[in-house]
């Protein structure tokens, strides 16, 4: 069972579209694996929608926005939108048919699912990663990494594979480190983690994960200051690999 989840504040920022893209990707990947968070996200989305589209707020507090949306602008937009060409296929589908959707869903998700190979087999990736490409695996000892080619400032998103009995030496973080366990299990000073667990650490934490049976994680490391504060880490090949 999944024990570690994103906090409610993180989920709320997630559904509002306020998280940085790579953080949103790793949160989304957890939600895909976690029924509990799926339910919570659905509820939070409903609440956010209610709030965004509440009528009386507009009327009483925000007359400027109301006026700024003048009638000629909205008329132009409406006309423009309604003259958009429509796909033939969309019109055919326009009477939704429950059976039809059930047929489509599994095919659709399979089509989008990306599978990554590693030296011990294959791993289907969370759907949030389907538009990203990973660089080839690089490894030192029992630890290997495949970094996603994705530009999000100082945040780096990677797959981290630790073979049976492997360990990452004790380290701290100058930024944040988010880990989502995709396969296998590992333990550190704070506990044992299973598939689906979502672990968000910041510089207050020190840990040295170790795995009995091997594991593959999706990791997000933000370490803007690593050139000064983490200098010694850069001299060590494992540090270089992970950061």
């Amino acid at each position: 069972m999944i024990k570690q989840h994103p906090t409610q504040a993180v989920l709320r920022a997630f559904i509002q579209g306020d998280l940085d893209p790579s953080v949103a990707i790793i949160v989304s990947s957890h939600i895909e694996m976690c029924e509990q968070c799926q339910k919570e996200v659905n509820q939070l989305t409903e609440i956010a929608a209610e709030k965004a589209f509440e009528q009386d707020i507009m009327d009483s507090f925000d007359p400027c926005t109301h006026q700024a949306f003048d009638s000629s602008l909205s008329k132009n937009m409406i006309d423009e939108i309604m003259s958009l060409p429509l796909d033939e296929s969309m019109i055919e589908e326009s009477v939704p048919n429950q059976e039809m959707y059930e047929d489509i869903e599994p095919a659709h998700s399979e089509q989008n699912q990306k599978i990554i190979s590693h030296k011990d087999g294959h791993l289907p990736l969370p759907r949030a990663l389907s538009s990203l490409d990973a660089a080839p695996w690089q490894g030192v000892g029992k630890v290997s990494r495949a970094r996603f080619q994705f530009n999000d400032d100082e945040r780096r998103l990677s797959l981290l594979k630790i073979d049976k009995g492997g360990q990452i030496p004790q380290h701290t973080h100058t930024g944040i480190e988010i880990t989502l366990l995709l396969e296998g299990s590992f333990e550190d000073d704070m506990g044992t983690y299973q598939k689906g667990d979502f672990i968000w650490l910041d510089k207050a934490h020190t840990h040295s994960p170790i795995t009995q049976d091997g594991c593959i994680c999706l990791t997000l490391v933000s370490d803007a200051l690593h050139f000064t504060q983490g200098f010694s880490k850069l001299l060590n090949p494992l540090g270089k690999l992970i950061y």
């Binding site: 579209g17 989304s28 659709h108 759907r127 990663l129 538009s131």
Partner: peptide, 9 residues
């Protein structure tokens, strides 16, 4: 990315 991050069937 949004369609991947917030998938909808």
């Amino acid at each position: 990315l949004s369609d991947d991050i917030w998938p909808s069937d």
